[in-house]
Design a protein around this nucleic acid. Sequence first.
DNA 1: AGCCAGCTGTATAACGTTATAGAGCCCGCC
DNA 2: GGCGGGCTCTATAACGTTATACAGCTGGCT
Lengths: 342, 342
Amino acid sequence: MGVSLKDIAARAGVSLSTVSNVVNGYRPVGEETRQRVQSAIDELGYAPNLSARHLRLGRSGLIALAIPELDNPYFAELAGAAIREAAGLGYTLVMEDTAGSYEREVMMIDNSRRQTFDGLIFSPVAVSREEVLAGPPSTPMVLIGEGVYDVPHDHIAIDNIAASHVAVQHLVSLDRWRIAFIGAQAGDHRQSAHLRLRGYREALAGAGLPWDPALAAPTTAFGRGDGLLAMRDLLARTQPPDAVFAYNDLVAIGAMRAVLEAGLRIPEDVAVIGIDDIEEGRFSSPTLTTISPDKEHIGRLAVRRLVDRIEGKPVGPPYDVQPPFRLVTRESTLGGRRAVRP
Amino acid sequence: MGVSLKDIAARAGVSLSTVSNVVNGYRPVGEETRQRVQSAIDELGYAPNLSARHLRLGRSGLIALAIPELDNPYFAELAGAAIREAAGLGYTLVMEDTAGSYEREVMMIDNSRRQTFDGLIFSPVAVSREEVLAGPPSTPMVLIGEGVYDVPHDHIAIDNIAASHVAVQHLVSLDRWRIAFIGAQAGDHRQSAHLRLRGYREALAGAGLPWDPALAAPTTAFGRGDGLLAMRDLLARTQPPDAVFAYNDLVAIGAMRAVLEAGLRIPEDVAVIGIDDIEEGRFSSPTLTTISPDKEHIGRLAVRRLVDRIEGKPVGPPYDVQPPFRLVTRESTLGGRRAVRP
DNA sequence: AGCCAGCTGTATAACGTTATAGAGCCCGCC
DNA sequence: GGCGGGCTCTATAACGTTATACAGCTGGCT
């Protein structure tokens, strides 16, 4: 193994405890000895053994970030912020891809009980309130984004209903009449899709537009392929939509592809808006209008909050945070009013 | 803390060692006691404390995957495969974003000497051969993709020159005469860019096309924005290119954006090809022709090889593997011969 | 009968760390 | 002079695990 406290102690001619105190400053050490110890550390190249420290401290120093899909750029960007924040606080962040599968999500909740991780940042899609409640609250958990409400854990998610309002109102402001929603979900879980659908319906009602169930297209997941298939379906209708509000940017990009494949123009024939503001949408053709949540803020906040709980800081009861978001207008909805259909 | 071996031992009325043997099967245990121990484990919900196990075993169970950019989908897809393989082998993979910065890359090499990680999978871009050699070979390291050659470590990377040949020959087969390369690098490091540039030059020569330095566009990094800027530059020339071979798919997507912004058509006016086969290129408009490496293969192989070294398996000397790749033709080069310019 | 081998179980010493208890020592104060 | 109290430093007991050494017991062989 590597260099240990014992080696340093021998080299500097002091006791183990003194070296430990120099390293982590638990108790003061005389100036002269400190210097001797420090130079021994530098010479031998000591670095604390984390396994031993964590064993002693009763913590593993690991926090898990469980997300449904690693290759969704939204989560990749979020994870970047989380990794940086965790490193700054002395923790190592481990990413776990649940693939949105029920079994793997349940396993993550279970694992969090075990000593593998000190805490869990979890973006659930398949499990529902009951499964989350079933997991004993022994290790702290912070829920992000989607899925589960009314559980005794911190929760960070944008106001999905408000965001949907903004998105739909933007399309309405372009004089669109037949606004579709892609990403509707059948089940009771996946509540985020429900909320966005609800915001969509409310905004339609607010604008005096009729609610047409045929325009709420379901998808099995929330990737580019899902958006593509759903949009092809919508375009095959006798009365195709003239605007689309997509569950997220990936779905929106798939939908745009379907529109262009069909030989239609964006935004003239169909305007498209998504949610997430992933970089891809700034370079797609056309560029994608979107609702932009503050990913950096969300990632950092989730880690900070989790670490506070792990370390037993007096942070009141579990809370619900709704980070800010803003509308970013790009080509996919640009160009004002469209030619009115007959 | 959680349930420990001691708790199980007390409950089952056996010694610590016996429980340990039931758990990890180091030595056989009588059938009757095994059952008693097992049910105690199930009832109390025992899970081994990893910190303690790793302390005893002298390993941390962690392997690091250090990549230059987490939000490059290529690495995200690669990381997915690596994470799965690592989990299957009993290791936890930790992703570290070096952001391509020299300091952070050196830190990763240094850290690998310390006991934090059992091994390192490293995709260097900023450091060169010397820095990698300077790091003592105490902990195993597997290099992937880019950058560094001739070091005593396993190395997995596609044959960049051959891949570039295929890409350029494809463009040549479309009767393109002025084929640009985007992603040329000034420094001596970033050798992958050098190799791709070299393959590009060789292929041009092989096709009897002249080498025009003005068509080899440098970039500061390899993102969408870099491709966009470089392509704008190329299009502003008096003799703009009629085809582009981009360092990777992200650069290609940025380049496509620039072409469309300029009001030109793809592939009629400019054909575009990249490397990586990220999902984004299957949904862009137009879809992107690319060289597709087997990312699943690379990710799994890197982890397997690293774990073999960590566990001291008799795997010969460091080796160089060149995983397979193939050309995937899509719209950005589709449509046969273009109208010949005057 | 004597003995070795095989099987099953136990006691114990590490691994490297941190917190607690305590041991010297010097100083100032009554 | 005695005593309390800072100030340094040390000895040691954990944390939970695994591997080694060892102890008993059975059964088969000479």
